[in-house]
């Protein structure tokens, strides 16, 4: 069998793919966090819970309404986004004039409540969600077996990230968003309804989390704790990429997923901590993050 540095090719590519899948989730989730933090100055700790909610909405649509995966991929982000809009209007909007810490505490509390409600209702053993038939099976590549669904997750995630980036960087809407991130008072003084922008941005950011949740449902089991497990890593990704940097969060998300995968091959003992070690190193050398702008 072919080996690289004494590691079988099969294992190497298998772990790289797994890393890329994890990276896809890191990227979408940290992208949402970065957009929300950039404009609202809110460290959205509820992000993981809303990702979990996206997966549950997909499961509920299938179980109670009979709507399958493709419906869920469109509807679940809308449901989660609408839920986020209510949260923003009713609760988060009251905190903008206060320190970051209050937003963090509020959203952390919300995460606990949302997770608790789902745990109460559905337990913690996890609910199965089948891969849609169109994407079952896989491709036998020369060096590995590539499951179709996993390839789809990477493609879908990349597409959503790039589309979001294009909207932010290349459109008028994105120009408002960037300007309001820099100086909301002045944008408001030009006659732009900035509070509406904040609400829609929060809704969009958490809709991304809901979308990631649907993508994740067939890979991981649908579990109330799935958000809490991933969100800590995602926050490390955001810190490494630089709080509020859009493209930085996407690149860092995919890269760190791959780094994690490689670590599993070459030094499995460190695979759970490698991202945090990188975070510490980055904070020591570039406190604003790799792509962050120092204010």
């Amino acid at each position: 069998m072919t080996t690289i540095f004494g590691v079988p090719m099969q294992a190497l590519f298998g772990q790289l793919l797994l890393g890329l899948i994890n990276g896809s989730f890191y990227a979408i989730l940290s992208l949402g966090l970065a957009i929300i933090f950039g404009l609202l100055n809110i460290i959205n700790f509820a992000h993981g819970a809303l990702y979990m909610m996206g997966a549950f909405v997909a499961w509920m649509l299938l179980t109670y309404v009979g709507l399958g995966y493709w419906w869920a991929l469109g509807l679940a982000p809308l449901v989660v986004g609408a839920f986020g809009i209510v949260l923003e209007r009713v609760l988060i909007a009251r905190l903008y004039k206060l320190d970051h810490l209050y937003g963090l505490l509020l959203t952390f509390g919300l995460a606990l409540i949302i997770q608790g409600l789902f745990r109460n209702q559905y337990g913690v053993s996890g609910l199965p969600y089948a891969i849609p038939t169109e994407l079952s099976g896989g491709q036998r590549l020369p060096f590995m077996f590539l499951p179709n669904y996993r390839a789809w997750v990477v493609v879908a995630s990349l597409t959503v990230c790039i589309a979001t980036w294009l909207v932010i960087e290349k459109t008028k809407l994105g120009a408002y968003l960037r300007a309001a991130t820099e100086n909301p008072t002045l944008v408001q003084a030009f006659g732009v309804n900035v509070p509406l922008f904040l609400t829609l941005t929060y809704g969009f950011g958490v809709a991304l989390a809901g979308f990631a949740g649907v993508l994740a449902a067939p890979i991981y089991s649908v579990n109330p704790n799935m958000g809490a497990d991933i969100i800590i890593v995602v926050f490390a990704v955001v810190v490494i990429g630089g709080m509020g940097s859009i493209i930085g969060s996407v690149i860092t998300g995919f890269t760190l997923g791959l780094v994690e995968g490689l670590t599993k091959v070459f030094y499995p003992e460190a695979s759970a901590t490698v991202i945090f070690v990188i975070m510490v190193l980055v904070l020591l050398v570039k406190p604003a993050g790799l792509f962050g702008r120092t204010a």
Binding site: A175, R178, A179, T181, E182, N183, T185, L186, Q188, A189, F190, G191, V192, N193, V194
Partner: peptide
Amino acid sequence: MASRNIARLGIGYVPEERGIFASL
């Protein structure tokens, strides 16, 4: 009134620090 509605009446503001956006 909120500033966005005041601006909409037809008042334009050029701030002292000029307020040019770096990301635009």
